Computed example of a mutant assay.
Amino acid sequence: MIRIRDYYLSYSTTLDFRTTLPFSQSPFQLHHRQSVLALGSCFAEHIGQRLIDRKFGLTLNPFGILYNPASILGSLRLLEAGRPVERGELFQHQDLWHHFSFHSRFSHPDAPTALEQMNASITEVHRNWEAIDRLILTWGTAYAYRHLGQDEIVANCHKLPGETFERFRLKGESIVETYTEFLSRLKKDKPGLQVLISVSPVRHLRDGLVDNQRSKAVLLLAAETLSQELDFVHYFPAYELVLDDLRDYRFYDRDLAHPNSVAVDYVWDYFRRACFSPEAQAIDARIDPVLRAARHRPFHTDTAAFRKFCTQQLEKIAELEAQFPFIDLSKEKQHFLNG
């Protein structure tokens, strides 16, 4: 795949006053029989959920949404070790029990329940750790928060008072050093490991326009250095596709910070063409009609025509299951059986 700096040099200018990012096939290839782990910002949720919907074996954000590279790396280390969260690591705030490494969706009014949810997520990934050979990491911001009392970077502040934390910007050199050490060691245990890093196009407007751009610049340069120094680490240009290729507020939500569904579709299409293996693309084309049929919501389900439609889909599913036994279409099968 083209290096980051080359994106800014090899563009085409057209009469409609738009610069289009040239397509490039990625060395990072996905197929349905791999075990994939995706961590990162809310933009990673969009792409990761689509991979799950397309029946890839992907685990998405087992700690919830993460934003800065240090917290993402800390989560990877916890998953590798499989160390359970202890009761003393939780804290109560605004009637909920929280953990600094987990997103608030894991928080709960009952401490044992919160602990159970967090440890179940760690255990599930750690149990499959040896099989994971694809990592998709999406960095959102270079700004991080250090808890002053515990002197450690947190993944989520959980609305604690601002004076509880020190806000600072991670240094690119530190990101490269820590990731190089971890990923190089991981590669020795997983010879087939491939890593894809992207920078989220979500704009962190609370940082201010200038600081947001500086933050993204740190991430972009760190990603480039890693992809240059480690041949199994690759860069995906999600940031450039939205900020440079689309480059228009029409492609943002009302908050002017998050890309809208049209922009996500555009990035997804590029990702699919760049990162799906030929086998994955062929399988995706085969299962797509069944997936679209399962999303269809008919007005009348008590007709012979609809029953015939369901029978036809079940026949297609049976054929696909026989040909691709590693594809899980049980949800779709149950949908048409209930129809």
Rank of each mutant, 00 (worst) to 15 (best):
R5V: 05
S104Y: 00
A111F: 03
C275T: 14
S41H: 03
L291M: 04
G192L: 04
T178M: 04
S277R: 09
V233A: 02
L73A: 12
I132N: 02
L115R: 02
R146A: 08
S198A: 14
A144S: 15
Q312T: 14
G208C: 15
Q49F: 05
F43V: 07
P109F: 09
L79S: 05
S41G: 04
S184W: 05
S174V: 15
I287C: 00
H258I: 03
Y235D: 04
T19S: 14
S227T: 15
A44F: 00
R286L: 13
F236W: 09
L314A: 08
G162H: 15
T141I: 03
A114D: 01
D265A: 05
D302P: 06
I122W: 03
V264R: 05
E89Q: 12
R77V: 00
V125A: 01
L76E: 00
F251E: 13
R297H: 13
E45N: 09
F276K: 10
Y7N: 13
P62G: 01
E321V: 12
D244K: 10
S101N: 11
Q49L: 14
D328Q: 08
I47L: 11
L314R: 09
H32T: 01
A131I: 01
F56H: 11
L37N: 03
L58V: 07
G208I: 14
H126T: 09
T311A: 14
C310D: 08
L79G: 04
E319C: 06
L209F: 09
D244T: 12
H32N: 02
P289L: 01
D151I: 04
P69N: 12
L230S: 07
I52L: 12
T141D: 01
H98W: 05
T113S: 12
R185A: 05
C42G: 03
D328Y: 11
F232E: 11
F102Q: 02
H204W: 05
K159Y: 06
V154I: 08
L30G: 05
P201R: 11
H158A: 10
E315Q: 14
H300D: 13
F276L: 13
R134L: 01
T303F: 01
L66M: 14
R18C: 08
I153G: 01
Q34K: 11
E181G: 11
Y239Q: 02
Q228I: 09
L196Q: 06
R77D: 00
